[in-house]
Design a protein around this nucleic acid. Structure first.
Lengths: 195, 195
DNA sequence: ACAGCCATGTAACTTGTTACATGATTTT
DNA sequence: AAAATCATGTAACAAGTTACATGGCTGT
């Protein structure tokens, strides 16, 4: 939702045309994530469908200015007055991946941790070294750096937990809590050998 | 992609039927994110379409066992041997929101920071207090806690940067880097008053 | 003339997510 | 007998993302 909401928030400052919105989003996020132009127009049409923006006539240069509606402004106000709530939604890809890896037999979670640490360290280093141009870029870079550092701390913690927990792997076929029925049926053709 | 990949990784241990997969995903992620059952079947059909899994015959209980293909196993191996790369993709909703808020005139970024800090603090507190049952749940809770703490550190940093940078807001209509053409056209009907 | 950017748009697609229909089995 | 859970599936949709087509304008 962040692209959609950001475009709406920019439009709340005054009408803009598509390309302009792309540029504004770009500046305000420190050119960190470049939007494909097509996405702007898609998003605008969806916002229009939802009654949050309206499409103006094209001016002499052919620029199509979009303006926010009252419902749109209300939505922006709501967005800026409420915090981002993590948890229910917001799945952390790395957390899922490593948790799954750590609980599956036959997967080398240690190797994954080392590969990830190397990646996250490189990322943190490059974020610390690269100078950020402007406030927006600096804010985004800070967020990314802090997040990479948290990732590294977490990786250490996971390694520690795994070393304390020698029997971490939860077998698929041995699970007591498994819904019903015994072990998986071996399929002849392409199934890989179960552990 | 994490749900899709996780289901594939579980299937790499041996054939499973839909409900079973849901249960396995649930256990391995500490019951943190409960999947709607329908999503399992959707995902399985898409994996089948992509040649990564195959559908077996139903057994006497009517359970439809799915098995991984060679291409699927290769994909799992690839997944577990490569780190999660943040940056290009992986947009941080909070970072975008706050960066946009901080660069738009007329938006009270300070209030947003305070609201977010209160939310993130509550979250961190509840993660620290709630006991985690089992390794998977503990790992996921750690990840969430570290991430919430990084968020709090970042909010402090943003507040500091904003206090150093009194002229942070970037006006839409005053921007020199703006693509072309002068100020936005005022639309008569529903446009909110631009700042 | 040609390359390249500005600008608008369309079509197709991905993953995730929900609501719903249907029936079997199990529990109370 | 009723309620709950197990189990499979379908249909629809949201948001993001990309590739492509089309033109105008600008600079070399």
């Amino acid at each position: 939702m962040s692209v959609r909401q950001s475009l709406l928030a920019i439009l709340d400052q005054g009408p803009c045309y598509g390309y302009q919105l792309r540029h504004e989003f770009d500046r305000r996020t420190g050119s960190t994530w470049r939007l494909n132009v097509g996405q702007i127009y898609n998003t605008l049409e969806r916002l229009e469908r939802d009654g949050l923006v309206g499409r103006g006539e094209a001016d002499e240069q052919g620029h199509v200015y979009w303006h926010i509606t009252d419902a749109g402004s209300a939505e922006v106000a709501r967005w800026f007055s409420s915090p981002v709530v993590r948890g229910e939604a917001a799945r952390d890809e790395l957390a899922i991946k490593l948790a799954v890896a750590a609980t599956l037999p036959g997967v080398d979670a240690g190797a994954l941790i080392r590969a990830q640490r190397s990646e996250s360290e490189a990322r943190a280093r490059s974020l610390r070294e690269a100078p950020s141009d402007g406030l927006a870029a600096a804010l985004i870079a800070d967020a990314m750096l802090f997040s990479a550092e948290a990732e590294l701390r977490w990786l250490d913690r996971v390694e520690q937990r795994l070393s304390e927990h020698p029997h971490h792997a939860i077998g698929v076929e041995l699970s007591a809590e498994r819904p019903k029925r015994g072990r998986p049926v071996k399929s002849d053709s392409t199934a890989s050998s179960p552990v």
